[in-house]
């Protein structure tokens, strides 16, 4: 899954930068066309929900999405999901 911020909805409040346990959201530097400074994503592939949602079949963490007052954070499927067996080596 891929984490994304909807630039049309985001108003740049930066609440996501406060709550993400991985500190994926960083305050943005540049205002977009609408004058909103959208947070930047720092290595979003570290997001637990990105990695494991399909494996667990439910939302993991998801705090950024819940706290986002503008309903701007979501996850999209990158490719058709192929279930993979995960072998854990000791």
């Amino acid at each position: 899954m891929r984490l994304q911020i909807d630039e049309h909805r985001c108003k740049g409040c930066n609440l996501c930068t406060l709550v993400c346990p991985y500190r994926i959201f960083k305050p943005g530097k540049q205002a977009n066309r609408r004058g909103v400074v959208i947070p930047e994503l720092d290595r979003p592939e570290r997001c637990a929900n990105c990695r494991l949602r399909n494996l667990y079949g439910r939302t993991l963490c998801g705090t950024c999405q819940m706290i986002c007052p503008d309903q701007a954070i979501s996850w999209v499927e990158e490719d058709a999901h192929v279930p993979k067996k995960v072998a854990i080596e000791y």
């Binding site: 108003k11 706290i67 986002c68 007052p69 503008d70």
Partner: peptide, 17 residues
């Protein structure tokens, strides 16, 4: 959407919850 709430307004969060 986007709604009329100001940037950072907590109302949107409560809607989510």
């Amino acid at each position: 959407l986007p709604h009329i709430f100001c940037a950072g307004c907590g109302n949107g969060t409560v809607i989510n919850c």
